[in-house]
């Protein structure tokens, strides 16, 4: 390989990294707008326009950025950057619609799960470093919550990987997201296993608001109790970065659920349908249109998952106390997850 082609590939990757980051941030803010509009409509309000999150971020970037006197400055300023980078990197490992991940083969589900834990840690570290007692309380709550939802999250990942191992055999890495997304799990599990997978999906949906610190698991940044908790001292640019990080995290989680459980593409179905209609419709080459259909379908799936996983739950439930939230993850949700695992195992043996 000569130096030119290496340089070219390298350049292309850099371009793609920027492109995917940009798309991730754009989609995140867009879906945050949808989320706010939908929840406003559910409360019979008119709600902000869809582009409101863009305006908020733009405003936050122009505001004064204050670092408290007693804060540890480099940690205080570094935490939001790390919180933003982690979900962006996770996005590089996830298939987006019909496109396979950029960093395919360099990491798998386990890595993505670790990357998903980083924003919560960054929030907690930023909160501790900001020297405000409110932020300290918020950071402690964040850590408690994180330790609670990691178990159900790990159970779901392990269930999927265990089943994948059975489907694809021992040679392939069952944790690889490409493998998981090209073998939709529902077709291989039968009735009892399907019930188990449904329970696992429920577990993941229960983890979703906790990961995003949305109600009913918004204890770490509870506005009315502890004055926005971990974010109490954050202003201007730093707050804006956290804001973006949260929205990108939402996209990453929703994409992860899509990849694990709903990796279906519409274009295959459509193509088959067109072939079935063969004599009537002229056979068209799908090509670019197939990609477009898949992208639109992916965006639609994102919307559905964010609606059921975030907006609906956020409007329907009030905030738990932190001990109740922790209990909720450790006992009922973990039991549901383990039951799901059990059903999948039983379904595979009978």
């Amino acid at each position: 390989m000569n130096i030119e082609s290496i340089l070219e590939g390298w350049l292309l990757n850099v371009v793609f990294i920027f492109l995917i980051s940009f798309i991730g941030i754009f989609l995140g803010l867009l879906y945050k707008g949808f989320d706010r509009k939908i929840s406003a409509m559910m409360q019979s309000r008119i709600g902000p326009p869809i582009i409101q999150p863009f305006r908020d971020v733009r405003k936050l970037l122009t505001k004064e950025t204050i670092v408290p006197e007693n804060a540890i400055e480099w940690i205080f300023n570094g935490a939001p950057i790390i919180a933003l980078i982690a979900p962006l990197v996770a996005l590089m490992y996830l298939p987006i619609g019909p496109f396979s991940p950029l960093l395919e083969g360099y990491g798998d589900l386990i890595l993505v799960l670790y990357l998903l834990a980083i924003p919560a840690i960054a929030m907690a570290v930023g909160g501790f470093s900001s020297s405000s007692p409110y932020a300290t309380v918020g950071a402690q709550r964040e850590v408690v919550l994180m330790m609670s939802y990691e178990l159900p999250l790990a159970i779901s990942a392990i269930t999927v990987a265990w089943k994948m191992n059975e489907i694809v055999g021992p040679e392939t890495n069952p944790f690889s997201l490409q493998v998981i997304s090209s073998n939709p799990i529902w077709g291989h599990v039968g009735l009892i296993g399907g019930l188990g997978i449904a329970l696992i999906v429920f577990t993941l949906f229960a983890v979703l608001p906790g990961e995003l610190s949305k109600e009913p698991f918004g204890q770490a940044k509870a506005k009315t109790e502890i004055a926005d908790g971990v974010f109490v001292e954050y202003t201007g640019r730093n707050l804006g970065l956290f804001y973006i990080a949260n929205t990108v995290q939402m996209i990453v989680l929703a994409s992860l659920i899509i990849t694990l459980f709903f990796p279906y593409q519409l274009s295959n179905l459509l193509e088959r349908w067109i072939i079935l209609q063969g004599p009537i419709l002229p056979i068209v080459e799908m090509g670019v249109w197939a990609l477009l259909v898949d992208v639109v379908f992916y965006l639609f799936k994102l919307l559905l998952i964010i609606y059921f996983g975030v907006s609906l739950v956020r409007v329907a439930f009030a905030r738990f106390q932190i001990d109740k939230a922790s209990y909720f993850y450790w006992v009922p949700i973990s039991i549901i997850g383990l039951l799901g695992l059990l059903f999948v195992v039983v379904g595979a043996t009978v």
């Binding site: 706010r36 406003a40 409360q43 019979s44 309000r45 008119i46 709600g47 902000p48 326009p49 409101q52 305006r55 908020d56 204050i66 409110y134 509870a222 506005k223 009315t224 502890i226 004055a227 926005d228 974010f231 109490v232 001292e233 954050y234 202003t235 707050l239």
Partner: peptide, 19 residues
Amino acid sequence: TPRYDVERFGIELVGTPRH
């Protein structure tokens, strides 16, 4: 509240003067 809903103008009540 739904009757006046200032969130349609992008106004939000925040929990800390820093925001």
